[in-house]
Design a protein around this nucleic acid. Structure first.
Lengths: 220, 220
DNA sequence: GTTTGTGAACCACTTCACAGCC
DNA sequence: GGCTGTGAAGTGGTTCACAAAC
């Protein structure tokens, strides 16, 4: 319950706990044990307890955790008590999917600006928001107080886009571009790389020859 | 150079090294040092050397690594010397984006089947492939020798879809559904969760108040 | 002189196991 | 008796630093 500094590994699991807790609340449960949370999140109970202990001593021995209270504490820790303004740069298939993704708004992430340099896309409206050229990124992102930028452009322009986002005051970037991005100190960067994910799957599949063969050979 | 068992952390970086190496090859470089690879991949040179040493002793002291040779070795280790047949389940915005993603085919991942239960989508063709109802998953995935399944459905049906994929002989699953999935031993599961990524960004942003304030206050 | 490959030291995270509190 | 919170032990990964090879 030192409470100062939550390990990265813990932070990465908090959203999962939050989701499980919200589901438990919807089922009408008032309290939940670390055992139950572990089961729902697919992890080990000791880990749940240690993770939660980094936020504070919010459990009750012999009882468990109060669901509503813990939901509030995790939301607060994650910074979800405020809404976040998001800009999506690049409205190809993926960018459009992201712009329209319902899970964002439901969790307090609101897409407020869309950018693309394809003349065929500029001016179009997606989910009620007009697509603007990236030349306007600096002014528009600042004006709309964008805090989070999502990069869904081809790799070649991703670094320029990231630079423009940083210049516009954006301090958090989520990139889907298949390239390494460099951002200044203090800007948080996370990356999702689809073909990298598939290549990792490929590795693991290739190294399970017996199982793969078993399954291929099993009856219809 | 023990070569047996490559750590997970190393496997996760191999695709990045591979990409950097291919780019170096395109620039006409015949050899590359761990220092250079580290710079391109945004990591530390000692880590590159240790990672590569898990595959074998493929470098030359005083010289570096032969680019073409290392590309081949990493490809082989990742199982990319064969093509992989991929099925995408759920052709909403995200599923369509994935089905059309050029980066997959370029790396040997070919989408060979699409599934969705929305009657408005069944029968439509996307990238030349007809969307079929998930009831046909078992037969069609087996028939087309699908090895990798991508789950891009709502959370509610994701577990059923995963079960159906496993039953059809799929041994690797990449899920975009915002829920915990359970798969039997021997099936590899990876997960990409968009709102979780944003929540992690939110945490880091919230815990940099001074920097956020600085940037908001800066001129221009 | 240059750069790899790798023991050794270090660090972060996980898991165990149990004291402490309900 | 049940369940949390946490020191201590264990595990896996990173970084250092240098001998070996070119």
């Amino acid at each position: 319950m030192t409470h100062r500094h939550v390990p990265d590994a813990t932070v990465a699991r908090l959203p999962q706990y939050l989701r499980s807790l919200v589901e438990e609340a919807e089922r009408g449960r008032a309290t939940v044990s670390s055992e139950r949370l572990a089961e729902l999140g697919g992890v080990n109970a000791a880990k749940v307890r240690k993770d939660l202990s980094h936020l504070g001593s919010y459990g009750t021995r012999g009882v468990g955790y109060d669901v509503e209270f813990l939901v509030y504490q995790i939301r607060r820790e994650l910074g979800l008590t405020q809404d976040w303004a998001v800009a999506v740069v690049g409205v190809g298939n993926l960018g459009r999917a992201l712009a329209g993704f319902g899970g964002f708004r439901a969790r307090g992430f609101q897409v407020v600006a869309l950018f693309d340099d394809d003349p065929a896309k500029v001016g179009r409206r997606i989910e009620g928001i007009e697509v603007r050229p990236t030349a306007e990124l600096a002014s528009l992102a600042a004006e709309r107080q964008v805090q989070i930028g999502i990069v869904a452009t081809p790799a070649e322009v991703a670094q320029d886009v990231a630079d423009a986002l940083v210049a516009a005051g954006v301090t958090s970037i989520l990139s889907f571009a298949p390239t390494v991005l460099h951002v200044p100190e203090g800007v948080v960067l996370r990356k999702v790389d689809l073909s990298m994910e598939l290549q990792i799957l490929s590795f693991h599949s290739s190294h399970q020859p017996q199982l793969a063969a078993d399954r291929a050979a099993r009856p219809g």
